[in-house]
Simulated assay, not measured.
Amino acid sequence: MENGVKPAKIKNIAELARLAGVSAGTVSRALADMSLVNKETRERIQALAREHGFRPNQMARRLRTQRTGVIGVVIPLGHERRQHISDPFFMTLFGYLADELTESGHDLMLSRVIPGDDEWLDRIVDSGMLDGALVIGQSDQSAVIERVAQYYKPLVIWGSHREGQVQCTVGVDNAAGGRLAAQRLLDRGARRLAFFGDTNGPEIADRLAGAQQAVAAMPGATLHDFPTHLASDEMATQISANLDDIGDSVDGIVCASDIIAMTTIRLLHERGISVPDRVAVTGFDDLPLSQRMVPQLTTVRQDIAAGARAMAEALRLRLAGKDAPSTVMTPELIIRESA
């Protein structure tokens, strides 16, 4: 700035090239900090750009590189259409994913999808807006995801693994987690168990199957399945109806998520039923909220932070044209006060 006069703002690379006395290609490479341009020239061009308030057009750069810099994070709600993005599990996982991906220079586009046909995922990945996609949960859309995964490689799913699948999944061993939860109740002496969860999605179905395996191995133990919505605006009503049906017939409840477990404990308390003295309750996820309630929640931990890192790394490999296998994490029983 001379005599207090602010330098004229440069509008494009051509103007900056004329000012620097080099070609537009040299300016483009210098602003990208490429070693093809010698260090002194790079620094001179970058200084001129700063002085004249020039910022390269990101859209043009992305068109040249055939990359958008955007990763889609998709939440399909095929079987639970009233569930919200504000669900604590979604927000916890999304937060960890955002930390991982924004640090590597990506922007995120979040979509909550209620599938109306079998091509909803095709439209997302073929839109030209994304470099890759992360899907949180398979819902009842496993077949759609599997088909798209056969031709679209930069796709990683949070969900259950099935032998022989093409899709790259990251998730906990849900059946093992279900066994852990039910076994904890059995070890405390409970023999009349209930399972609260919506088994239309494969993750919850696996948790129920694991709980059934544990109960089958214990003589005299029983387990009854009570379908329970994941949507917060329906969950309490349905759990209340489940408790009406149960009456005094159960002494342990395996809940398919921490949020279901927290709601169940609240409703039991409102009915004067002590947890865990009369009914022990387990959750699944180990969300931060599980330690902030009374009683603190016994739950099955799926390491959400580690899962987000695994999803981001698998996506990075696939964006680079490399293969990335599925990741199956080991669940951990976290014993607290509710069981």
Rank of each mutant, 00 (worst) to 15 (best):
I259R: 07
M235F: 03
A216V: 11
K322G: 11
L243E: 10
A310Q: 06
D33G: 06
A236M: 01
L36V: 15
R271W: 02
S127Q: 09
V156C: 02
N57R: 05
R112I: 11
A175E: 14
T263S: 14
A306L: 15
L110N: 03
I71P: 01
Y152L: 06
R123V: 12
D286Q: 09
K153N: 12
L267T: 06
L319V: 08
E270A: 15
D99M: 13
G178V: 05
L319W: 10
R179F: 10
A306W: 06
V144E: 15
F94M: 08
I273H: 05
D187P: 09
A256Q: 06
V294F: 10
D140M: 10
R162P: 01
I253F: 11
L77T: 02
G72F: 05
R67W: 09
G321Y: 14
D198M: 03
L289T: 06
I124V: 06
H79Q: 14
S111R: 05
R50K: 11
A216M: 11
R207F: 08
C168Y: 02
V135R: 00
T169G: 01
L319F: 06
L317S: 03
P331D: 11
E100T: 00
I259P: 01
R179Y: 14
E313H: 05
R44N: 04
A60Y: 01
L93Q: 01
R301M: 10
L333G: 07
H269F: 05
S160C: 12
P7K: 06
M109Y: 10
I260Q: 05
Q150K: 10
I10S: 00
R266G: 11
L93F: 04
D117I: 07
D87R: 03
E337Q: 15
A24H: 07
E163G: 07
G178Y: 04
S139I: 13
G220M: 02
V37H: 07
